[in-house]
């Protein structure tokens, strides 16, 4: 059990996917203008990331490895992620129109989130088992959600600040992301390896 707790602490704080590994920056910059949309994106990503992490593990272990097709991993993972996203969208649309309204436009966007593919590939690289993959995906998603929501609230505040003209918008957001990343350096060393 402590192994899974370590995976969670490691992925949420120490090796945060956005601020330490610099994965998933497009939604991080793109969907963080407002707190509400950021929250919606965070929820959707958490769901998809956990599910696709598990599915890509299954596809690799029970399909690619027995057939000796490991060189197709990247391709397969992209396919798996796209399928999971589409499937999630269809299920959500049929079962809960309210949730679909909240998550709706974000779901297709997740397909192109490099953090999702990153998690699937890192699972392979670090030899995670079934449960470890699930926790790794979930932890990565929680870490992503945490910084996305904090960043969105920060950006709402920066939007009303008297930022010098050349730095308005994306530039100051990137400076802020850099400072956040620096603050996250404080967690380094919490988990070895």
């Amino acid at each position: 059990m402590s192994e899974f707790a370590l995976i969670l602490v490691s992925t949420v704080l120490v090796n945060n996917f956005v601020l330490v590994k610099f994965l998933g920056l497009c939604p991080f910059m793109g969907v963080s203008r407002k707190l509400e949309t950021a929250t919606g994106m965070a929820l959707a990503t958490t769901f998809v990331l956990t599910l696709s992490s598990v599915c890509s593990y299954l596809a690799r272990t029970y399909l690619l490895e027995p057939l000796g097709l490991e060189y197709l991993s990247t391709l397969t993972f992209i396919l798996v992620i796209a399928v999971v996203v589409q499937f999630t969208e269809m299920v959500v649309r049929k079962t809960s129109p309210l949730l679909h309204e909240v998550l709706g436009i974000f779901l297709p966007l997740i397909t192109t989130n490099c953090a999702v593919l990153g998690v699937a590939l890192l699972n392979v690289q670090q030899d995670h088992g079934f449960l470890a993959s699930a926790f790794y995906g979930f932890g990565a998603a929680v870490g992503f959600s945490l910084v996305l929501i904090l960043f969105a609230a920060l950006r709402e505040r920066i939007n009303v600040a008297d930022v010098p003209l050349p730095f308005r918008g994306g530039a100051i957001a990137l400076v802020t992301a850099g400072l956040m990343s620096m603050a996250f350096m404080g967690f380094s060393g919490l988990v070895r390896g």
């Binding site: 920060l154 620096m182 603050a183 996250f184 404080g186 967690f187 380094s188 060393g189």
Partner: peptide
């Protein structure tokens, strides 16, 4: 548990962020 001897500066920055 962290790698730095004192954590006040990082703790302040992290909470500034929050």
């Amino acid at each position: 548990w962290g790698g730095y001897p004192d954590g006040v500066a990082f703790a302040v920055l992290l909470m500034n962020m929050a």
